[in-house]
Each structure stands twice: as structure tokens, then as C-alpha cells.
Amino acid sequence: MKNQQLKLRMMIVTALFAAIIGVLAQMTIPLPLVPITGQTLAIGLAATILGSRYGTLSVILYLIIGSAGVPVFAEFSGGVSKLIGPTGGYLVGFLPTAFIIGWFMEKRGFNFKNAVIANSIGMLVTLTFGTAWLKIAADLSWSAAFAGGFTPFILVGLIKACLASWIGVIVRNRLISARLLFTEEKDQTKSA
């Protein structure tokens, strides 16, 4: 397959994952300060399946679409105000999260064990960005921001990290086998 065709295919897959993030963002459990959403699961899936480059590009595309006002953020919301509001840190934190998950797996191998480690680290990155932003945007104390923006999400975050790892590695392997996903790096796809 020609290089241009490969790039086009990866651009299409990247756009598809931006849409998947938008769809899973609508799975919401409301909480007082910050809702639990499917966004972080989708970010983990994108990075686990696509790696650092295309996983991060799918997040960038998702954030651009949402910032433009398309209601792809949690609770069918959109606009720049969401990025600068109290929960904007989580959205911004998705960028380093996707990159770190993909980068870690590219360096260590695309298997379940590495995916769980990478997605757990990614979850902590998202929560750290979100909590710091929540503290500043909502003018909270560190203890209040931590109690409202970090602690309630640890267990759910670890569950989503495991789900993203399990589903992501399986889907990645199947997409590669079906020649629908092409990678530049060497995969270590066997479970460790």
C-alpha cells in the first residue's frame, strides 16, 4: 500500500477515534463538582490502539471540535467556555495522557500488562491536571480540590484503565490482523 494511502487511512482512523471519544463522553454519572464520564475510557482506548502520535491527534481533533461548539463534551456540551471552566483541566489533561499512554506502550510493547500500567499512569495524569485546574478555576483549597476532583475518581479510573487496556489490546491486534491499522513501530502484542 502506498505511503499516501496509509496516511489517509490513519487520518480516517484518527477521526473515527475523535468521534468515539465524543460518543463515550455522553456516558455520564453526575457528581457535585465533576461528573464521571466515558471520556477517559475513550482516551485510553485511542492511545492504546493508535499509539502516541495518532492517539494524541485524535484527542486534539476532539478538543478542536468541542471548542468550536459542537456538543461532544460531557452532557452534550461544547465551546471554549468548557476548556476554561472548572472541568477544563481534565479536557486539557487528555493531551498529555494520550501521548504518555501511547509513548509508554511504544517503548514497552503493546500487551495487556503494559497497557494497564500505561493507562493507570494516564489516569493519574488526567486527574492531576483536572484537580489543579479545578483548584484554580473554582477557587478551592487544595484539600477541597483533591476531595472533589481526585479522590472520587481513583477507583473508577483504575477500572476504566483496565477496561481500556483489555479492549484496546484486543481491538489493536484485530485491526492489525485485518490490515485496517498500520504501525511504524514493532509490536509486542502477546500478553505478558
Rank of each mutant, 00 (worst) to 15 (best):
L31I: 08
F129M: 04
G55V: 12
Q39E: 06
M1E: 09
A68Y: 01
N173S: 13
L16Y: 13
G130Y: 10
L91W: 03
N173W: 08
G51W: 00
S58T: 15
A46G: 12
I136P: 02
T87D: 13
G66H: 06
V169M: 05
R179K: 15
L124E: 12
L140A: 07
L61P: 13
A164N: 10
G122E: 01
M11S: 14
R108G: 01
P152Q: 03
L134W: 04
L45T: 11
A132I: 15
T189E: 07
Q188N: 06
A138Q: 05
A74F: 11
L61N: 08
E184S: 07
I136Q: 13
G38S: 10
T37H: 03
I100K: 09
V169N: 05
A161S: 12
A161V: 04
G102V: 01
G44E: 04
A42E: 01
L57C: 05
G22S: 11
L33Y: 13
A25L: 01
S77F: 00
M1C: 11
D187N: 10
T97E: 10
S52F: 04
K160P: 01
K113G: 02
N111W: 02
L24F: 08
T37I: 04
V23R: 01
A42R: 02
R108V: 02
G157I: 06
V156K: 04
G168K: 08
L181W: 12
I176S: 01
V92L: 15
G78W: 02
L91I: 07
A42C: 00
S81Q: 12
V171H: 04
G44T: 02
I176D: 05
W166L: 15
P86L: 12
V125F: 05
P71N: 09
V59E: 06
Q26C: 05
L31F: 10
G93R: 07
G157M: 02
P152E: 04
I117G: 01
I159W: 10
P71D: 01
Q26A: 02
A145R: 11
G69C: 10
K135L: 13
G122S: 11
S191D: 15
L16G: 15
S177H: 13
N173K: 14
L91N: 08
F104P: 00
G102A: 00
A18M: 11
L181G: 10
I167L: 01
I20W: 07
I12L: 13
K186D: 15
G109T: 04
N3T: 12
M1Q: 15
W142N: 06
L31M: 12
R9F: 03
I65D: 11
I159L: 13
L140E: 11
M11W: 03
S165T: 06
F104C: 02
T14R: 10
L31R: 01
P32H: 05
G130R: 12
L124H: 08
